[in-house]
Structure formats: C-alpha cells, structure tokens
Design a binder for these strands. Structure first.
Lengths: 213, 213
DNA sequence: GCACCATTAGAGTAATAAATCTGTTTCGCC
DNA sequence: GGCGAAACAGATTTATTACTCTAATGGTGC
C-alpha cells in the first residue's frame, strides 16, 4: 500500500480509537513509522487528511441509499440498508464524536457536512415513501419529514449516547452496542407500520436479543 | 458579585458563545479583567470551573422534573416543564456541544454526567407514566422506556443538529431555533396521545408557527 | 553511470495554553 | 495604626502540537 493511502487509513484507525482531537500528526506518522515531514509531503495539513476520509464516507453513504427501482422493495432490503448504514457509521465513528468542533475549525468541511446531512435526511424520507408505496408502512404525508429527521438524529447521535449517558469508554465501544439503535428505530417506526409488517417486525425484534435501554 | 462567582458566570457565557474548547483560562480572566493568577487562586484548574457550572445545571434539571404530586397534572404543566427544560439546555448549551471530549479528559465529570443522564431519562419516563395516569396518553408499558430515551436523545442532540446539519454558526444560535425541537417531540408523542389531547395539541402546534425541518 | 524527481528523514520553529511562582495589594479586625 | 490573611497581578515555566526546512535517499529513464 502506498504511503499516501497508509496515512489516511492509519488516521481513520487512530481517530476512531482515540478521537480526532487527541491524535496529532506526529502520532499518525509514528504509527506507520514515517517522519512527520513525510506526512506533510503527502498532505498539506490535518484537515486535508480528514477531508480525504470524509470523501470516502460521503461516497459510501450516497451509494447506500440507492434502492432497486425496477421492483418492489422487501423488508430484507430495508434491513440490509440499515445494517450497511450502521457499518459505515461504525467505520467512521470518529466523525460523529467531535463533529461540532471539527466543523468549527474547517469551513470547507462544514459546508460539505451540511450538504451531506441534508441529503441523508432527504434520502431517509425517500426510504419511508418507498416503504409506504410497497405497503409496509402508512405515514401521513406531513409526518414523513419529522419521522425521517428523528431517525437521522437518533442514528447519528447513538454513539454519543453510548459514550456519554452510558459512559462506555472509547476503546470499549463495539459494533454490537451500535446495533442496539435498531430497537430504538423500530419503536419510532412501530406506530406507522401496517398490521402484518408490525407482527413480522416484532418477531424479528424478539429474535435479535434484549434491549439495553 | 464576588470574583469567584464572576469567574463561573463569565466562563459559562464564553463557553456558550465560543465552545469550551476554544476558551482558555486566560480568555476568562481577561474578560472580567483579572489576572490568570487570580483565577487560579479561586479554582484549581479549568475542570474545577466546569464542575461548578455542572453543579448548577445538575441541580436545576433535578428541580425541574418535580411535578405536583397532590393533584392531576395538566397539559399546561407538561408544556411548562418542556419550556423550562429548554431554558436550561439553552443556558448551558456548551455542555452538549463537546460533551464527549469534555468527559474524555475529566473522569469525575464523566461519572457525574452518567448519573445525571440516567436520572434524566428515568424522570422522562415518569412524566410519561404520569401523562398516562392523567388520561392524556396511552402508551404500552414496554414502549415507555424507548419513547423516553428517544425524546432524551432528541432534546440533548438538537443543538448539535442545528450546528452541524443546518450549519448554524455558533454565535447565531437562538433560543427560538432550540424551540423548534418541540415540533419533533410532538411528532414522537403523537401516536400515543389520546384523541382529545391530540386535537388540542395539533391546534397548539398550528398556533406556534412553521416547522423548520 | 548519471540526471531527475518523487519520496523520505528528522531536527527545528512558532504558537498556544494550562498552570505555577513570586511577589504586592487590599481588607477585616484588634 | 498595624498585623495577618485573603485576594490579586503578572511574568514565567512547561508541555504540547501543527507545521516547516534542509538535506538525504532511491528508483527510473536514458
């Protein structure tokens, strides 16, 4: 692997483990056994590295929301979408940790994140519309936006909830704990599920395991 | 006002306006025209100041949730509780900005926040139980906890949503924007409201103004 | 073998910020 | 007035960190 890519990969790893804030460029360089000068040969500054990481995140999330247009979607489709979204949030979990701080000293990233979030919320709305079309849900038109926004906030805030309210230490956070958010999501959606779907969902929920709330 | 109190008050102001991270002890001292040495005469360190601010927040939120026990509560009671909670979140909004970072380098605060959040969520549950008892809502027992948690996450994350997804600059955040979260809360509660309450709530919602989502 | 350029090393710089140290002033009180 | 303690000033220290500078290294085409 090229040094340039190793820098980004190592940065992502270290950021996820210890938070962007407490990882210096020297840490990154040391971790892959190169000199600080070398790191700065490849990237102008730390923001530049973060921007490249965000490139990946942005692209991956965008791809995620593309549902099959030629046929009805299934509950399986929906479940997979959620699962892959959580995969991404997990893989880039440092982002939603110090997000406000990061955006505060990087105007460009701030712009980009704003567009990203807006698009993400819009895509979530689309998913619900589709769920309605395919008979899984019935949501009054004026409640689609609020629901999508609530879900978005819930999903992007869940790791923060784990870290702060539950006090999970940074290095003990697991993908399984992140998965618990599915229960919360389900409860948000429950009132809008059609009868048959609700039963099926409840069975699925019982299968998965206990809620940690 | 005593210097000791002025330090805390000025810190809170500056933290709210620019974030705890970017406010140094020198800034605080300069703002109230005292020397850094003097500041450190009154407080051991920055964490000490933050702890004193948290003292206030903690106490204020605890008082908040005390509902009249001798009579049925009204929708007005509930609305006031929400309003006062938002007042507090507004007054101490710096807390929920860099919370993860703050707790990461202050073990004691981390412990305290954890207890605080747990209690807050529990209190929220109590409110909903009470709302059920008084005939305003009907929530299946197993959905009270998830609902309370969702509401808690929503309320504590709303300022972050405004700052990141909507890109509101730190110094342009207003109490009115925070108030918008009421709409989101209402949509979360809507499915569980009893008929009469739902109508009343919808009217109230229409009165308040447009949703910014 | 040599010129060229991407790549790398590593010491060094400048800025920042938390905290300390040494003293001086102010205030309550006898 | 004067004494002791609380309150305060301000320069300084210590640590950290993002980033730069100069020089070396190594591969590639000729």
């Amino acid at each position: 692997m090229k040094t340039k890519d190793k820098i980004v990969q190592a940065s992502l790893e270290l950021f996820n483990l210890h938070g962007e804030r407490s990882i210096t460029t020297n840490h990154i360089a040391a971790h892959i056994k190169i000199s600080p000068g070398n790191l700065y040969y490849h990237y102008r500054n730390k923001s530049d590295i973060i921007a490249r990481i965000f490139d990946q995140y942005e692209k991956a999330v965008a791809n995620l929301f593309e549902l099959p247009a030629d046929r009805d979607i299934t509950l399986e489709d929906r479940a997979q979408l959620t699962d892959k979204l959580l995969d991404l949030i997990w893989a880039y979990r440092f982002m939603h940790r110090d997000l406000v701080g990061m955006l505060a000293n990087d105007a460009e990233l701030k712009e980009r994140y704003q567009a990203f979030a807006t698009q993400g919320i819009r895509s979530t709305e689309m998913v619900y519309r589709r769920m309605c079309e395919c008979g899984f849900m019935a949501i009054p038109e004026d409640q689609i936006k609020p629901l999508a926004l609530n879900i978005w906030i819930l999903v992007t805030s869940w790791t923060t909830y784990l870290r702060t309210a539950l006090g999970v230490p940074e290095d003990e956070l697991t993908r399984e704990q992140l998965n618990q958010v599915i229960y919360q999501m389900t409860y948000l959606e429950m009132p809008y599920l059609t009868e048959a779907t609700r039963e099926e969902t409840q069975e699925l929920l019982a299968t998965y395991g206990p809620n940690a709330a």
